[in-house]
Design a protein around this nucleic acid. Structure first.
Lengths: 245, 245
DNA sequence: CGTACCGTTGAGGTGAGTCAAAGTAAGTGG
DNA sequence: CCACTTACTTTGACTCACCTCAACGGTACG
C-alpha cells in the first residue's frame, strides 16, 4: 500500500502539533515516553460510547469509524478517521464520557496519549493550545454531516459526497481520473449516509450505469473527477487535512 | 418576560468563563472596555456565512438561528442560540470564514468581543483556555443534529425533541406541566428539523390531537412532560447549559 | 380595505425503507 | 483442494412518510 502523505515523516497530527509548537525537547520526550502504540484488529473497538475519556487517540495506520448509538441501539456513523488523524479529543476536553464508539474498519495501529500529559501540555504551552483549539474548532464532523446526512439530498448524491470526502484522504493521480479503495463495508457506508445497505446497493448500481463511479467490491473506479463533482453542488470548504496544521 | 436564569447576575457565558478563571481584574476591565453591545432587530443578520470571523458574539437577550446555505442556497438551520449563549467561536478559533449565518429570530441584544482580545486572554490564562476548550468540545451542534435531523426519526418525534431542547433553555414549572413560547416561525422549525412547513403543521395537529403538546400560535402547552418524554427515546446527555460552566 | 405573509389543509407522487430471498465472497476444517 | 459455514451484497415487490403543488383561511399593517 502506498504510504499516506500524512503518515510521511512523523506519524500523527498530535506530534505534528507538538513539533510546530513552542514545546521544549524535554517535554516532547516526556510525551513520547508516555505514549502507547497498540495494534487493533478489524472490528475491534478502540473506545466505547459511555466510557470515560482517559486519553487521546491517534491513528498511525488504518481506518476507524466513529458511530453513536441512541437509546434503542440505532447506530449512526458520523465520521471516518484516516491515518494521521486524532480522535477522542472532544470527550477529553469536554470532560464527559465518550459520546461515540470508535471501531476499526481495518487493522489499525493506534497511538494513545494519557489525558494528564495532554492537558499539562495544553496548560503550559499556549502555542500548542492554540493549535489544538484550531483542530477542535475545525472538526469536520458537523460539516461532513450536512453533506452525508442531509435528507434533502438523495442517497445517490450523498454517496458521491462520501467518495469526494474519502478521495481527499487518499492518493489520487492528477489526470482527472481516480481509483479509490474504500475501507468499509456497505453497511458502514449505509450508517454514514443514514441509509440502508439496500439503498446503497441501488445507488451504486445507478452510478455504475451512468459511468460516474464503477464499484468493484471495495474498489471504486472514477473515470472523471469532474463528472463526479458535477453530481453534487457542494461548495469547496477548506479542510483540516494538511500536514502543517 | 421572566429573566432567563443564565442572564441573572452576569449576562453571558464568556463573562462567566472570565469570572471563574484566573484572570486578573485589570484584564477583565480591558475586556469589558472593548466589548460592544448592539441591539439587533428581528430577521437581522448578526454575522453571515462566508465573511471573516472578527470576534466572538454572545446573546444577552433574544434568540438567534444559525443556518448554513449550500451552493444552491438551500438553507439548513442547525442550532438555536438562546440568552447567555455564545456563537461564532468555532470560526474564530478555526481561523476560517464563518460557515454559518446567525439571524435574529427575535429582537436581540448582542455582545461583541473582538478576536484579538479573546485570543490574548486564551494565550495568557490557561484556566480561561481550559474553560473555552470545554465549551468548544461540548458544542451541542453535532449532538442536537442527531436528534433533530436524523431521517430515521419521524418528523413528529423530531418536533418533540425540539420542544425538549427548547424547554431546557426556558423557564418551566416543576409540576410536570409546561408552557413554552417558541421564538421562531414554522418555516424556521422546518429548517431545523430538515422538513417542510406543511409537514410541521401536520405534526403539530397530530400532537394536539393526542394531547401531547397543544400549539396555539407560538405558545405550546404541554400537559405532561412525562408524556412528552415518552414520545422520544433519546438518552439524557449532559448539556453545557449550567451557569457554572 | 387591500396587500402581504404566515399557517393550514388536501390531493397526488416518489424516494427510500422493509421484508424476503437469492447470489457472492470469505473463511474454516477435513 | 474441496465441501461447508458464515457473512456480506444484491435484487425485487411492496409500503409509507414525507415532499410537491395548489388552494384557502388568518392576521398584521399600511
Amino acid at each position: 500500500m502506498v504510504p499516506h502523505r500524512k503518515c510521511a515523516g512523523i506519524g500523527c497530527k498530535l506530534r505534528e502539533h507538538i513539533r510546530c509548537s513552542d514545546v521544549p525537547a524535554a517535554d516532547v520526550t516526556r510525551l513520547e515516553n508516555t505514549m502507547v502504540v497498540r495494534a487493533v484488529a478489524r472490528d475491534e473497538k478502540i473506545f466505547s460510547q459511555g466510557t470515560e475519556a482517559t486519553g487521546l487517540y491517534c491513528l498511525r495506520s488504518g481506518h476507524t469509524l466513529l458511530w453513536h448509538a441512541d437509546a434503542f441501539n440505532h447506530k449512526t456513523a458520523f465520521r471516518v478517521i484516516g491515518p494521521g488523524e486524532m480522535m477522542g479529543y472532544r470527550s477529553l476536553f469536554g470532560e464527559d464520557a465518550h459520546t461515540a464508539t470508535a471501531q476499526a474498519l481495518t487493522a489499525c495501529d493506534v497511538c494513545y496519549y494519557p489525558k494528564k500529559i495532554v492537558l499539562q501540555l495544553v496548560d503550559e504551552f499556549p502555542g500548542f493550545a492554540r493549535r489544538f483549539f484550531r483542530t477542535l474548532a475545525r472538526d469536520r464532523g458537523p460539516r461532513d454531516a450536512l453533506l452525508l446526512r442531509g435528507q434533502h439530498i438523495p442517497v445517490r448524491t450523498r454517496l458521491v459526497n462520501l467518495l469526494l470526502l474519502m478521495n481527499t484522504n487518499e492518493m489520487c493521480p492528477e489526470d482527472n481520473t481516480c481509483v479509490l479503495k474504500l475501507p468499509m463495508l456497505r453497511r458502514d457506508i449505509a450508517a454514514l449516509l443514514a441509509a440502508r445497505p439496500e439503498s446503497i446497493a441501488r445507488a451504486i448500481k445507478e452510478l455504475g450505469k451512468d459511468g460516474i463511479a464503477i464499484f468493484n467490491g471495495r474498489t471504486v473506479n472514477i473515470p472523471s473527477l469532474d463528472a463526479l463533482n458535477a453530481e453534487t453542488n457542494r461548495e469547496q470548504l477548506p479542510l483540516d487535512n494538511s500536514v502543517t496544521v
